[in-house]
């Protein structure tokens, strides 16, 4: 299922409600009802809209953001917004091009992206390893799970001072903070997915002589994959959030560094550019997660289509 059709399905009920508000002809119209029995064409009566709009759904959904930007631009041009605290979209876009032209923006984005990827790699590896050990073995559960619950209960960013004490103020505490957030999100979801694999399928597999190894590779891990992907999606969000906190520690480069510089020199336009960058990176991460789900869970698609 494409993202566009997914959103179509999720908004179908909203469309149906909107259709309800239209003319519900409860009384038969004699001119179009020669039988006089009060019979009606069922196609005009349903709460399901007859045909979808010809404009693609994703384009329709762009309406909200576009309207917001237009209103923002109009209010800025009318000088209702103070240009010093709320520069208009055109100004922000211009600033973005200047920063791109000097190569400054790319360098900082790459520095931040590098940290996030590094943190993701370490965090996903640790989270999955931990979830496998505690999901598949009783001793692993006893050893790991309660500790992860405790880690989960503490707000991750409260660990920052400790990470600085351990790793100094270089790259390590930044990557460590991102890894920690990612690891917890991946662990919690993957572990519970492993433990919640349909018991009737496990029972069926056992009756067919499936050994421990095949049980894990052919039943439990594929069954837990959807849960892992939910964890990965949350981890991507958590990684960008952790990045903002991590880059408040003495970062020579990165989006956080730009943000604190902009704050210092009161460059509100730069701050808006950075907010836009965070939004784009976040949306891109979600798109990546959706892409992975579509690729890895193709066996599910058949179900959606049925």
């Amino acid at each position: 299922m494409t993202p566009a059709s997914a959103s179509l399905a999720s908004t179908a009920s909203v469309d149906a409600l909107a259709a309800c508000e239209g003319d519900l002809a409860w009384e038969a119209d004699r001119s179009t009802d020669p039988t006089g029995l009060g019979l009606v064409d069922p196609r005009t009566q349903g709460i399901v809209p007859a045909a979808a709009s010809r404009v693609p759904r994703w384009l329709q959904r762009l309406l909200g953001p576009v309207a917001l930007i237009v209103a923002w631009q109009v209010l800025s041009m009318a000088e209702i917004f103070d240009a010093r605290t709320t520069p208009g979209p055109a100004t922000v876009l211009n600033t973005a091009f200047v920063m791109l032209g000097s190569g400054e923006l790319q360098a900082h984005v790459l520095a931040s992206l590098g940290r996030v990827l590094h943190g993701l790699a370490v965090g996903v590896a640790l989270g999955v390893a931990g979830a496998l050990v505690s999901g598949l073995t009783r001793w692993g559960e006893n050893l790991i799970d309660a500790n992860m619950e405790i880690l989960h209960a503490v707000p991750n960013f409260a660990f920052l001072p400790v990470l600085i004490a351990w790793f100094g103020i270089g790259e390590e505490p930044k990557v460590a903070l991102i890894s920690l957030s990612v690891c917890i999100a991946v662990y919690i979801n993957t572990y519970s997915a492993i433990r919640n694999v349909d018991a009737s399928l496990v029972e069926a597999a056992r009756t067919f002589g499936v050994g421990r190894r095949e049980l894990i590779t052919a039943v439990i891990l594929p069954g837990a994959l959807p849960g892992f992907l939910v964890g990965l999606r949350l981890a991507l969000t958590a990684a960008w959030l952790a990045l903002i906190f991590a880059e408040t520690i003495n970062a020579p480069a990165g989006l956080g560094r730009m943000m604190s510089d902009a704050r210092e020199y009161f460059r509100v336009d730069v701050i808006f550019v950075l907010l836009g960058i965070y939004a784009l990176l976040g949306l891109f991460s979600l798109a990546l997660a959706r892409f992975l789900e579509a690729r890895l869970l193709s066996w599910r698609r058949a179900f959606d289509g049925a």
Binding site: E203, A218, P222, W299
Partner: peptide
């Protein structure tokens, strides 16, 4: 079984 219990993946 009454339900097929096939592994969907």
């Amino acid at each position: 079984f009454q339900d097929p219990r096939l592994m969907p993946w």
